[in-house]
Amino acid sequence: MLTGPFRGSDALRAGLLTRGVLRSRRFVRIFPDVYLPADLEPTFRVRSLAAYRFVEPRGGVLAGYSAADAFGASCEPSGAPVEVLAPTHLAAQPGLVAHQGPTDETVSVGGVRVTTRFRTAWDLGRSLPLPEAVVAVDALARVPTPGAPPRFDPFTLLDRRMRERGARNSLRLDEVVVLADPRSESPMETRMRLALVLAGFRPEVQYELRNAFGGFVARVDLAFPQARLAVEYDGAQHDDALDRERDIRIGALGRHVMRFQAVDVWLRRDRMIEAVEQQVRERTALIVAERLARRG
Results as ranks from 00 to 15, higher is better:
residue 16 L to T: 02
residue 51 A to S: 13
residue 85 L to D: 02
residue 82 V to D: 02
residue 209 L to G: 03
residue 276 V to Q: 05
residue 184 S to N: 15
residue 90 L to A: 08
residue 54 F to E: 09
residue 93 Q to D: 04
residue 129 P to R: 12
residue 62 L to Y: 14
residue 205 V to S: 01
residue 249 R to W: 12
residue 5 P to H: 09
residue 205 V to K: 04
residue 113 R to A: 15
residue 178 V to P: 03
residue 75 C to W: 05
residue 152 F to Y: 10
residue 140 L to W: 07
residue 34 V to R: 05
residue 160 R to W: 10
residue 109 V to F: 09
residue 153 D to M: 05
residue 81 P to C: 03
residue 128 L to T: 06
residue 114 V to S: 04
residue 162 M to W: 11
residue 226 Q to S: 10
residue 197 V to Q: 09
residue 32 P to D: 08
residue 257 V to C: 14
residue 49 L to T: 08
residue 106 T to H: 02
residue 32 P to C: 06
residue 272 M to E: 00
residue 239 D to L: 09
residue 190 T to A: 11
residue 234 D to S: 12
residue 194 L to P: 01
residue 196 L to G: 00
residue 22 L to V: 09
residue 97 V to G: 05
residue 68 A to S: 12
residue 232 E to C: 14
residue 140 L to E: 01
residue 45 R to M: 10
residue 36 L to W: 13
residue 96 L to M: 06
residue 160 R to L: 12
residue 121 A to I: 10
residue 235 G to Y: 11
residue 111 G to I: 01
residue 251 G to W: 13
residue 192 M to L: 15
residue 47 R to M: 13
residue 128 L to V: 07
residue 61 V to P: 03
residue 35 Y to E: 04
residue 91 A to C: 13
residue 207 Y to F: 11
residue 227 A to D: 05
residue 147 G to T: 00
residue 20 G to R: 15
residue 92 A to R: 15
residue 226 Q to K: 12
residue 219 R to S: 02
residue 132 E to R: 13
residue 101 G to Y: 03
residue 26 R to Q: 14
residue 87 P to N: 00
